[in-house]
Design a binder for these strands. Structure first.
Length: 928
DNA sequence: GACATCACG
DNA sequence: GACGTACGTGATGTCC
């Protein structure tokens, strides 16, 4: 019986799968010969996931993967610029294309392509045929060009987002139904495919017009009736171009297919064929996983000749054996194993994520992948009541005895301790007088290797590199208010969770460690990441003294001022509302008071950001009051109130936590609380810093790099004028202004200097005329003129930007002067992503090099100040803060300044001096 | 949990 | 009238 009623056709957009697979994965190569196979691997994973998801009523009766073939189609005949702006296919993707065809066949799924026809047209023809025959059709794709096909039994499915796109979905996207999508696309054009459309008309406007006139033809026929003169002129003038665009976006439903729907009937997998293909590609994990699913033997994949440190073949995580250790004898046998091996993965379980108030609950160890243990030490016995009992649960060995046995191993210089985020575990152990060393950290390995590609949490890494989802902690602790602490988790539940973490960590280490050399980031890891762990741990333990009374007084003062402002605002608004709600405020300002300039964002709410209110404040009273209220509200909630909650009850100090692998560029990030964004720019906010004080008899000393990013830019981009100015110690912004605006340095006005300063920063951020215009509140043309002039005066800047972008496009990463790699996977993407990626790529080497410099200074600091009573407390990107007894301040400043100013050496000798400004005082307000 | 807003370098 | 727009972060409040 032929395809018809009751049948369901699935059409997979093959090119979209390939593209996503390629960009989602690191450039994986086949071990035996280096053939790039990352995209093939991702493609197979996606196909497998697709097959797994085909259950129940949505299961297809017919299925095919449709590919593009050849680049020349009828669209190029009618418009030679069609898709002309596409970049060439990346070199390492090209050889993978035929392999994805073979992969599809290996999965025993029909694989169709036709020379000279786009996949989209084949999909259109098949979908229309399926509908005509009375069947259903689901197109697995999120490509908007296919949305015109939706309706009447045809729908789309976005496999990445796991959402179905039906008629309503299309309407949400285009503002018109599927049957009018081509009309809207013809008007709006498409930068990705280089479809011209009508200049100045986007999807929104296009939908508006089509809805008003009913169809594109009608609209073009009656174009003269359009009220807006500009629009009318555009439509009349570009009518031919719009008609051409429609022919380009209209899919051809009459592709002369060389096969029929019946050829696409779903076939059972052929295990032999599939296994041999996967084995040929050397996809070890995937082969194993699919073999299990099909219940067949996984073929052996030959290991290439072993190198010095190579990952052992690791047993499946499902077969892992996890022991509970309950006695000294058990523990000793694990310790023996550790000494025999020379390394061990360690993980601690505690009562809190905050290391300062976390108590140790248990420890897990893993020496060989697939065999790990958990040593429960402080689990409480479960009770029937909600809170459980305070009694220690049975079967746990003595807490002190366990630590006494473990201390020698953890401190043994010949045994490597491997952890995921070791700073945390090291701090926990330090509470029990154990100094864990030497260490490796899988989070930092991943950061050195993969910054910019993904985050480096264990869950993310396990998912991505082991194809395994670890047991979620939430499944043990619950969430929200009813969440329990780990000591309340029954031991039998804790063992598989905790031991698995150590197992996963060790597996990741085996994978990542050999890659350091391959990717040439060993030095980065060993000199910029790993040594920072003990330094930051010490700083976090030090904490900084914060005076509660000062904060509390300020908090009260803020409350009163806010209440007064609130009354005035309500008065001006003509009624009470929540000033803290941007939504309500927007409606009051722009609907009720009908102030000008109301602009709704993508969520349909009015924007009420500071820049918008600032503009309104010149004409009206209320926006200024709201701005003042907002400032106080921010200061109170984020600083004077929240900071008090972070004062540790035992130390009286605030202990932040630095994340080493948070920011892609190499910068640190500070959390719980964030001490890198304490106010300073306004007088009122700056006073918060008065609450950060030195301990009795001490002073706070702050040393910060002056203009470090601009200096690095001058060096990297090799700009003689900038370099000279820094060497001569001239005010850099004034110098820039003088160069650009032909004003002598003596005659410099603050306003001209301000503009130059904005441009200098703009350059570091990957300047655009639009951005500078907005920042300086000047016309865009004027801003663009400034930029042009800047490039004219400092041609090296342009060259640096172009070179950096070219490098990034070629290698998909950029580098700092110290070899840190920041991956830029989006750099070759099309559409709005591309602009972001370009600017980030320009900024990353500059911001990243500055981050590397201060990291180097921090790593050298403990040794440099070891004979001084000074303590390093905080880092704020280009600033270090110390607490020093008064009589040692001068000596400390001298030594710290020297370490900071020479931090790049001897690896990098900068062409510009790095200079450091120093300040001191009882409080941070005085010191900075 | 998404979004808007705003604090810092 | 707008593809979209300065880089990198984290915390808070509202609203669904």
């Amino acid at each position: 019986m032929g395809f018809g009623k009751g049948h369901h056709l699935h059409l997979i957009d093959g090119s979209a799968f390939i593209f996503r697979a390629y960009h989602a994965l690191p450039p994986l190569t086949r071990k035996s010969d280096g053939l790039p196979v990352g995209a093939v691997s991702g493609f197979c994973n996606m196909l497998q996931r697709y097959v797994d998801g085909n259950t129940g009523s949505n299961a297809p009766t017919h299925v095919a993967v449709i590919f593009d073939k050849g680049s020349h189609t009828f669209r190029n005949e009618i418009y030679d610029q069609y898709k002309a702006n596409r970049d060439a296919m990346p070199e390492d993707l090209r050889p993978q294309i035929p392999l994805t065809r073979r992969a599809t066949e290996a999965f025993n799924i029909a694989c169709e392509e036709m020379e000279g026809f786009e996949a989209d047209d084949m999909i259109a023809t098949l979908a229309v045929n399926a509908r005509a025959a009375g069947g259903r059709c689901t197109i697995i794709s999120s490509d908007k060009d296919l949305m015109q096909l939706v309706g009447d039994g045809v729908e789309m499915f976005d496999a990445m987002k796991n959402v179905t796109i039906d008629t309503e979905g299309v309407e949400a996207k285009f503002g018109v139904g599927p049957e009018r999508v081509v009309d809207v696309q013809a008007l709006a054009g498409d930068s990705v495919d280089n479809v011209p459309g009508a200049p100045g008309i986007g999807v929104k406007t296009a939908a508006l017009l089509i809805n008003e006139y009913g169809s594109l033809e009608e609209l073009l026929d009656r174009a003269e009736e359009i009220k807006q003169p500009k629009r009318r002129q555009t439509l009349v003038e570009f009518a031919d171009q719009i008609r051409l665009s429609k022919r380009l976006v209209q899919l051809d439903c009459e592709t002369p297919l060389t096969f029929t729907l019946d050829d696409l009937e779903v076939r059972d997998p052929d295990p032999d064929k599939l296994m041999s293909f996967l084995a040929e590609m050397e996809f070890r994990t995937l082969t194993k996983r699919i073999a299990d699913k099909l219940d067949v033997e996984a073929p052996a994949i030959a290991e290439p000749e072993p190198t010095a440190v190579d990952a052992p073949s690791m047993p499946d995580l499902k077969d892992a054996v996890y022991d509970a250790v309950g006695s000294a004898e058990d523990l000793q046998s694990w310790i023996d194993r550790i000494y025999a091996r020379g390394w061990v993965a360690v993980d601690t379980e505690t009562t809190s994520l905050n290391e300062m108030q976390a108590d140790l609950v248990g420890i897990s160890l893993c020496v060989e992948p697939g065999h790990a243990c958990y040593i429960p030490l402080a689990h409480k016995a479960g009770g029937d009541d909600l809170f459980g009992s305070e009694e220690r649960s049975e079967g746990q060995m003595d807490f002190d005895e366990a630590l006494k046995l473990l201390k020698p191993v953890l401190e043994d210089p010949s045994v490597l301790k491997i952890g995921q985020n070791m700073k945390y575990d090291a701090k926990i152990f330090s509470h029990y007088d154990i100094t864990v060393a030497p260490i490796d950290d899988t989070m930092l390995l991943s950061y050195a290797l993969h910054a910019g590609l993904h985050n480096h949490s264990m869950d993310a890494l396990s998912e991505r590199y082991l194809g395994h989802t670890p047991i979620p902690i939430k499944s043990l602790l619950g969430t929200g208010k009813s969440a329990i602490t780990f000591d309340r988790v029954p031991v039998d539940k804790a063992v598989p969770y905790a031991a698995e973490d150590a197992d996963v960590t060790l597996r990741l280490w085996h994978l990542f460690k050999p890659l350091l050399h391959q990717k040439q980031v060993t030095t980065v890891y060993e000199t910029l990441e790993r040594p920072l762990v003990p330094v930051l741990a010490q700083m976090e333990r030090n904490g900084i003294k914060v005076d509660r009374d000062t904060l509390s007084r300020m908090s009260n003062a803020f409350s009163q001022k806010m209440a007064a402002l609130e009354d005035e605002i309500h008065e001006l608004a003509g009624g009470s509302f929540n000033v803290g709600s941007p939504k309500q405020l927007g409606e009051i300002l722009f609907d009720r008071l009908e102030l000008p300039g109301g602009k709704k964002g993508k969520t349909g709410a009015y924007g009420t950001g500071a820049d918008i209110l600032e503009d309104l404040a010149t004409e009206h009273e209320m926006p200024r009051r709201v701005l003042d209220w907002r400032q106080l509200s921010k200061l109170k909630s984020t600083y004077t109130d929240a900071l008090q909650d972070h004062i540790n009850q035992y130390t009286g100090r605030v202990h932040t936590s630095y994340s080493i692998a948070g920011a892609n560029t190499g910068r640190l990030a500070s959390t719980d609380p964030n001490l890198q964004n304490i106010p300073i720019r306004t007088e009122e906010g700056r006073r918060i810093r008065e609450a950060f004080v030195a301990d009795e008899g001490n002073l706070l000393v702050s040393l910060d790099y002056s203009q470090i990013e601009l200096r690095i830019l001058a060096h990297i981009a090799d700009i003689p004028a900038l370099k000279k100015a820094f060497k001569d110690g001239i005010d850099i912004h004034a110098m820039t202004a003088s160069e650009m605006f032909d004003v002598a340095l003596e005659d410099m006005t603050p306003d001209v200097r301000r503009k130059a300063k904005a441009i200098n920063f703009g350059v570091i951020y990957g300047i655009s005329g639009f951005g500078l215009a907005r920042n300086l509140r000047i016309p865009r043309e004027e801003a663009q003129g400034f930029i042009d002039r800047y490039f004219e005066r400092f041609p090296g800047i342009r060259a640096y930007m172009d070179d950096t972008i070219a490098f990034a496009k070629e290698r998909e990463y950029v580098q700092t002067l110290f070899g840190r790699k920041i991956n830029t996977p989006e750099i070759n993407a099309k559409g709005p992503h591309a602009g972001f990626a370009r600017r980030a790529a320009i900024n990353a080497p500059i911001q990243g090099t500055a981050a590397d410099v201060i990291r180097r200074a921090m790593i050298r600091m403990p040794d440099a100040i070891k004979d001084l009573p000074a303590k390093m407390l905080l880092q704020v990107h280009d600033e270090l803060i110390f607490e020093v007894p008064e009589d040692a301040v001068d000596e400390t400043v001298k030594i710290v300044r020297d370490v900071m100013e020479t931090a790049s050496e001897p690896v990098v000798k900068l062409d510009v001096p790095l200079t450091v400004d120093a300040g001191q005082g009882k409080s941070w307000a005085e010191a900075h």
